[in-house]
Amino acid sequence: MNITIIDILWWFLSVVAIFSALMMVTSKNPVYSVLWLIATFFAISGHYILLNAQFLAIVNIIVYAGAIMVLFLFVIMLMNLNKETEPQKNRWLKIAGALAGGCLMLILVAALKDAAAKEQVASVNQGNIGLIKNLGKELFTTYVVPFEISSVLFLSAMVGAVVIGKKE
């Protein structure tokens, strides 16, 4: 079996992604959770690059790691949330949450077990639809209507944010 650098990167990124996602959920300190989530985003962006979806990878970093997570950190740092101030949740609530999560996982596993997609291995380092030129062409020709509608959605969200922010 040939081990290429892509295999090594894939394993490395997968381990990092799963580990940091677990750490994000289990950390007691919310600031740590945010930082682990950022690490997860970076690992997933690495996967996108392996799949040759470069634009998606970069946008994932710019938008999620660079903008949204900064706002999360802002809020958490300013509210000074930490281990001591974290509200103690009811034990039954925790059990219910674990059960619900387990059910979701069960369904996902059951749905994917017989799916045809199982046979298809992700084509690593191939395909060029993820390159910005092809992606842009697709978005502005085939999918131009949903694309424009989603931009209107963003605009309305922006207007809403300004209205809420202006309220005295």
Binding site: Q54, F55, A57, I58, V59, I62, A65, G66, A67, V70
Partner: peptide, 13 residues
């Protein structure tokens, strides 16, 4: 391919 965008993403991080 993403040259400038990488600059931009690092700036945002």
């Amino acid at each position: 391919d993403m040259g400038i965008l990488i600059v931009f993403s690092v700036v945002s991080v």
